[in-house]
């Protein structure tokens, strides 16, 4: 046995090992910066520069967090709250709009449908950064810069979400089911919310996650729009602090701890939503 098939398992083992090594290296590659951030945020300012970056010195995390939350009347907490509002509600409404739009494009026939879809597709290609300045000038016309809405409203738009919703709706929502719902007397809106939305859940979770991360990480739009630091999202706030590090070195620890804490909501969002994601995809594939 071992003589006959010696080649095959050996090759399998080799390729598996190779795959594991590649994956191991990429895991390391992605995790080392986070590890560095974690280790860095546990250090006091003095030890931060004088000890090795990838291992602990004295454990100072709680003190650092305490300093962070106390600095400048706790403006950091405000930034976190803002980020959660921008990203949470922005992603929620953005997903809803994308789902409705994609669903309509997939399930209704009307003149100009493909044109609209193509325009939306074109929107995928335009980077959000390129739109920030025109948006600033438009919001200036309405005296609406430096407001919550100046960052929130543009965040609701997600061409990629529309694209994804359309593809998913045409694949996962059978026309027969819609016919049945209509025969049972459900209106179009009700059909969408109680039938189609459920079938589209995996796609919606995906869109929500994408949108959440995109808004959370969006930096350029708030940079251009906002002047009032009580409106800043956490990305812009930390960047502002970081630009001061040369002259006010005390802030450095706060930037590190702040950056570390600011990734926690993203991790929570991913861990709690990925269950729906997988569950939805699995349920779809079995039926």
């Amino acid at each position: 046995m071992s003589q006959i098939s010696a080649g095959a398992p050996k090759e399998k083992l080799a390729s598996r090992t190779a795959a594991m090594i590649v994956m191991g290296i990429s895991t390391l590659y992605f995790l080392v910066p986070i590890w560095w951030l974690f280790v860095g945020s546990t250090k006091s300012r003095a030890q931060f520069s004088s000890t090795i970056g990838l291992w602990f010195a004295d454990f100072n995390l709680w003190q650092n967090i305490h300093d962070l939350l106390a600095y400048n009347d706790g403006v950091y907490l405000r930034w976190m709250l803002n980020s959660i509002l921008y990203a949470g509600f922005g992603a929620l409404l953005g997903t809803l709009f994308a789902a409705m739009c994609g669903y309509a494009l997939a399930k209704y026939r009307f003149p100009g449908r493909e044109l609209i879809f193509n325009v939306v597709l074109g929107g995928v290609l335009v980077p959000a950064t390129a739109l920030a300045l025109p948006l600033f000038l438009i919001f200036s016309q309405f005296n609406a810069t430096n407001t919550f809405w100046s960052v929130f409203l543009p965040s609701l738009v997600s061409p990629f979400g529309v694209y994804l919703a359309r593809i998913f709706a045409s694949a996962s929502v059978p026309d027969e089911l819609l016919e049945a719902a209509r025969l049972d007397g459900a209106g179009e809106v009700r059909t969408f919310f109680s039938v189609s939305r459920r079938l589209m859940t995996p796609a919606l979770v995906t869109i929500f996650l994408f949108q959440f991360v995109a808004i959370w990480n969006n930096f350029f739009l708030p940079l251009i729009m906002l002047r009032d630091q009580t409106l800043f999202p956490v990305t812009l706030g930390l960047y502002t602090w970081n630009s001061q590090v040369n002259q006010i070195p005390e802030i450095r620890t706060l930037v590190i701890v702040g950056a570390f804490l600011s990734i926690i909501p993203l991790i929570i969002a991913f861990l709690s939503l990925q269950r729906f994601w997988r569950g939805g995809l699995g349920a779809g594939s079995v039926k």
Binding site: L133, F136, L137, S140, N143, T145, N146, L223, I224, L226, R227, D228, Q229, L236, Y239, T240, N242, S243, Q244
Partner: peptide, 25 residues
């Protein structure tokens, strides 16, 4: 008080944008 990153970090660009939009501080 309005705030932002240091000058070359973005605030100067913001000033110029605001000057052309007519809403500079």
């Amino acid at each position: 008080v309005q705030t932002g990153p240091n000058g070359n970090g973005g605030t100067y660009k913001n000033f110029f944008n605001q000057l052309s939009a007519g809403n500079a501080p």
